[in-house]
Simulated scan of single mutants.
Amino acid sequence: MKNVRVTHIGGPTALVEAAGWRILTDPTFDPPGRRYSFGWGTSSRKRTGPALRPDELGPVDAVLLTHEHHADNLDDRGRALLPDVPIVVTTRAGARRLGGGARGLRPWAETTLTAPGRPPITVTATPCRHGPPLSRPIAGPVVGFALHWEGQEHGVFWITGDTVLFRGVRQVPRRMVVDTVLLHLGAVRFPSTGPLHYSMTAAEAVQLCTLARPRTIIPVHYEGWEHFTQGRDAVEKAFAAAPDDLGQRLHWLPLRTKPH
């Protein structure tokens, strides 16, 4: 996408610089080594740290938080950053828990980011299901975000959020043209729930991108934690076998993280 810069900080955390805005997704800045509980007998250890510390980010105009109740999307140091950010957008349940004026959205609801001297950005919440059917009461609410601003040439900038492939997420490319997608992957699984997966597999990602046909595909949230079962190799293999030129649209952003 023209005039957009994306810096992958680690996991789901990315700094998106566009139209004069500096937007941070799912802030995770804790060091590696700690084990975190995800509820219902599930847990995972963080294996790698962030590419940047919070004090190395520079000013952040807004945080887009797909969900705040899992530490691989909002950890302690990421949470400490939120009070200094002018705008925080998340789920409705997450906004109630965070307080502080956070904006909560249901899927397909919109909010507008505004600030002096910058064009407004329309943020549309997109559907997510963070696991198999009937998992929402356990996994909790999650949303993705589609960003649109004046001057975009080819379509929205879409952050899928933690989701599996299901009817709701398939509606996104049917409702809007997607130029760039920040694609949450990893095929999350836990020993206590067997073969069930809680985020998109590489095969599901190919299906979704075949439907959406984005010009640029940026994988995130596939590394750095024990509960990811598919990394870069699995994603590259799946996209290499995809029809047409889909694999050529895959762009891996560099990470400067060090293994624990």
Rank of each mutant, 00 (worst) to 15 (best):
G20W: 00
R22H: 00
R189M: 01
A80G: 07
I218T: 03
I138D: 06
F38W: 13
T163F: 12
N3T: 05
K46Y: 12
G99R: 14
H260D: 11
Y36T: 08
G231H: 12
P83S: 13
M200D: 02
E236V: 10
S37I: 05
P173T: 05
M176W: 14
L255H: 10
P132R: 02
G58I: 07
R96Q: 07
D233P: 13
G144C: 14
V89C: 01
P27F: 00
T28A: 09
T216A: 12
G49F: 08
T163P: 10
R79W: 05
K258E: 15
L57T: 04
T193G: 10
S37Q: 14
I159R: 04
R45F: 11
L57F: 05
L65Y: 04
V181T: 07
G186S: 13
R174I: 12
G11F: 00
V143T: 09
R92M: 08
K237L: 03
R79C: 11
S44Y: 03
G131K: 06
L211W: 09
E110L: 14
G41C: 11
R232L: 02
R96T: 14
P259V: 15
A109N: 08
P59V: 02
T124W: 07
G151C: 06
C209G: 08
V156M: 09
A187T: 02
V16Y: 05
V123W: 03
G140I: 10
G194M: 01
T180W: 08
R189A: 04
F145W: 11
S199W: 15
G117K: 00
M1G: 02
L253I: 00
P133V: 05
V164E: 04
W149N: 05
F29K: 02
P59L: 02
G41P: 04
P259E: 15
G140N: 08
L182M: 10
V123M: 00
R175E: 09
E56A: 07
G161K: 10
